[in-house]
Amino acid sequence: MAICNPIVISGENHLNVVEPLVYWQLNGNTNLDVMVQPNSQVTLVLDLNACRSVQFHAMVQPDSILDVALVSMKDQSIDQHYRITLQNGATTNIRSCFLGNAKKTMKMEIIHHGLSTVSTMEHYGLINTANDFKIEAIGTIEKEADNTQCRQALRALTFSDHDHVTMVPSLYIDNYNCSASHSTSIGAMSPKQLYYLQSRGLTMESITLLLAKGYITPVLELIPEEELKTQLREEIEKVVIDACLTKLQ
């Protein structure tokens, strides 16, 4: 079942996803319409490193699960729009890790349309330039969506006072028989934190690696295939260390 080579996708695509794990490398400007079959579980790993813009619409049909891991680590500007609709009994877990080294914007909306739907959205950003980095996370619970759970967590680590990041979590709730939460944290590692880690023998390089792990691991945990997970971890850690080391020093 191992799918470690990405399927390269660009342009307009209408896809019925039946594979349990798909690794897509998106190129250029990509429009994706995804239909997840009822009673199925699908994990999409989207490599956005070569992508300039993405429009992603997914319909998660009844009693199915859609997990999405998004990775954007290269210094490529990107504009992203995601809209995921959950039908009765559907679940989605979205996790992304971004290196904020170019202008990157994302608007992600999860629409709880059916009964007993569940969503979690976690976005992790390592910000190392003054370029705009903006994430807008929206959870919409429609009137019909009884017994819904909706969670959002946004985290960004900056490396200097000049880095700029905007993260906006929002919830629109029309049915009050639900459980919903959102959180955001943005901040830099303080000199005291660096000193503490160094006082245990860690070098700047190992500190950077540790920080990167903290932001990357939750995203990789979504991927059920060890070979792909290891491959992505190595690629991402190398990019993060190269990009962040000079900022920490």
């Binding site: 005291k192 934190q193 503490y196 540790l210 920080l211 792990k213 903290g214």
Partner: peptide, 8 residues
């Protein structure tokens, strides 16, 4: 002791 979020 300093808190370091994100590092286990």
């Amino acid at each position: 002791p300093i808190e370091i979020p994100g590092v286990t």
